[in-house]
Design a protein around this nucleic acid. Sequence first.
DNA 1: TGTATCTGACAACAAGTGATGTCAATATCG
DNA 2: CGATATTGACATCACTTGTTGTCAGATACA
Lengths: 215, 215
Amino acid sequence: MEAEQKTGRRYKGVSNEQRRAERRQKLIEAAMVVYGAVGYHGASVRAICAEAGLTERYFYESFENGEALLAAAFGAVMERLTSEVMAALAPLSTLDMGLVVRVALATYYSQLRENPNEARVFLVEILGVSPRMDAIYWDAIRQVSLSVLRFSPDAAERAEALGLDLDLFADGLIGAVVQIALGWVRAGYATPIETVVETAMAILGAVNRQFLSPP
Amino acid sequence: MEAEQKTGRRYKGVSNEQRRAERRQKLIEAAMVVYGAVGYHGASVRAICAEAGLTERYFYESFENGEALLAAAFGAVMERLTSEVMAALAPLSTLDMGLVVRVALATYYSQLRENPNEARVFLVEILGVSPRMDAIYWDAIRQVSLSVLRFSPDAAERAEALGLDLDLFADGLIGAVVQIALGWVRAGYATPIETVVETAMAILGAVNRQFLSPP
DNA sequence: TGTATCTGACAACAAGTGATGTCAATATCG
DNA sequence: CGATATTGACATCACTTGTTGTCAGATACA
């Protein structure tokens, strides 16, 4: 029934797969722009295709529907953010926890400021869209949770001893960082980034000193 | 041109104004149900009217459009939450800050559990809808900020001395509490409420001890 | 009782949506 | 060159949406 042609003809010097990949990437980038302008819910497939300079046919070539594109866009932002943070953290010794967290926060907030459209996708547009998107969002939260908690191997025991829920505890810390980002974005990035980082550090540092440092 | 009749005819024993008010209330309650089921973006005016047992005409009698209803619903939830918290706090002496915060959190989380639909409206559906709704959301955040910071009159000076942004600091604390609520709701309220409160208290308490208690 | 008001069910409309299909022009390659 | 794959502009379809309008019947009031 369906002709499964593994590799198509070359066109303007580029292969079939690469052309597809480039169109897909163009659509994701266009989606960021449109989402940033009118939000996900105000973004139609037509508008995104127009922004990308492509037609609807190529949209459905790469994405099953509009929601799939949102998922891909979120994934792209998440991937870029984590890789930027990892890159910034790479040259550091992991002994100084305070510095690690500070650099991670600085990188995170800096990236959000440099890419306001992506920030909107990452912080706002993703929630409450559908159960599937919620799941993607919470997977990302859990991933960050695990990355953070990896620095404190005995956190689970400590939490249990104190009568806390470790997952919710991590959610709370992430929520603090995210809400600070939201407030910062909303205010048009008015606050200097050093102050933003310092403010987040104040909360995380207090928690750290309370629960992680030796008495 | 327009006949400005201040008060209409009575009907089934109730006045014109009261009938209007009851219909409006019914629409708000129906909106909670529909929002809870399919989200704000999946909720059509028709569906809400059907749930309320009213026709579209009465919708536009009370609300200019669907977004105005969302705003009214959010306002109703916000009002109820604050009044519940105030009522729980009323019999307390305000001297024991820890207890005040604990009771406030317990009331807040308890209310969210008892009204899952309202929780969804309050926590998820409101953000990223439109600039107007964003403004309403942030007004609510600021209102909570001010209520909290009222307990610490010298917070502004302390924050400045430490190089922090007080607004963002408050955003962070609220974000922690809210994200814990989100995680709790998402997990189907599985965690006992005492544990949830304790987990939030762990964060707020650590911050409090670090920045508010005498050294 | 008769008239004005109120109610509810539903029609109607234009606009926009996701998704699929058509088709001529263009580029590739045997 | 000639056949075929690829592209892009546009048509098309069924459907939903917000919003306004119509109208017969129920209720109130003089």
